[in-house]
Design a protein around this nucleic acid. Structure first.
Lengths: 147, 147
DNA sequence: TTTCATGTAACTACATATGTTACGATTCGG
DNA sequence: CCGAATCGTAACATATGTAGTTACATGAAA
């Protein structure tokens, strides 16, 4: 199964936007991410619908962050992306007649739901501001190592 | 992304085998699961390599469980299947140059590793015997309801 | 020796993420 | 007002991975 990397992509894009003065075009973001500008527009469009960014068309247009970095968490972004399926493993049949399969599904579902709940908790704990701070720390570290 | 349902499938198959006298053929298991017998052989072959089941060819052959149901956990089965990827979400680029992307990956990896650790714990806690008992309970319940 | 079963390779079918092309809609600058 | 820049979006292409299917070799039992 090919993994959905949109959450990773939008985080990367948003942090670049946070470091950048003025709006960034889909083309510029595409170059940062190594992604196609149309894919950028497609994905950022979901964040726009969630009110997290805004887009301006025409000359000197592009994408801007329109939310507080200290508020927006990974969970918000996951929701903005439509809460895509988290697991690459699942039940063969979601509503089985067979009692054996029902027992199997119940056990698997319980484990997956717990893991998903933990993941969502962790996602809710991390904001864009946290990531920006981590980036700043890494940046300072690299400069210190080079000197 | 199509989900990997092999763990669900082998659990379903193993429990049917546990309830069944003598070996079960790939054809019979395929009918239980609603799956193709070749796919059954392909998947059960991995369990055979892990020593969890054995296969006999020829007349009155088929698959047999060759391990203690009280010992074999979901985790063992997951391992026997080659520990397939658990998450359908992931980083865009696993070894990025970009410090922004490194910060993003670090945050996501941390959350995913914690969730995976919890899932593996839960998997280790559930044995085939537990599932068989749960099936028996469901079976008794259904009969009680019908009466 | 015939039949029934697994073992396995090769190919097909299908789903989904991402990439690409094309073009319309909008905005700014000259 | 025109033209370039930019987003919005549809339609199609490509890539990858799961499961299904066909075909046939191998082995065991009646």
């Amino acid at each position: 199964m090919k993994r959905d990397s949109r959450l990773s992509s939008v985080l990367h894009a948003l942090l670049h936007m946070a470091e950048h003065e003025g709006p960034m075009t889909s083309d510029a973001l595409g170059r940062c991410l190594g992604a196609n500008p149309v894919v950028v527009r497609r994905t950022m469009g979901l964040l726009r619908e969630a009110g997290l960014v805004s887009a301006e068309r025409g000359h000197s247009g592009g994408w801007r962050i329109s939310a507080d970095l200290r508020i927006v968490s990974l969970r918000h972004l996951h929701e903005a992306l439509g809460e895509p399926a988290i697991f690459a493993i699942g039940n063969r049949n979601e509503v089985p007649e067979c009692l054996v399969e029902q027992a199997v599904n119940a056990a698997l579902d319980k484990a997956f739901l717990e893991a998903e709940a933990l993941l969502m908790e962790r996602f809710a704990d991390v904001t864009l501001a946290d990531l920006a701070a981590d980036f700043t720390r890494r940046h300072a570290e690299r400069r210190a190592t080079k000197d």
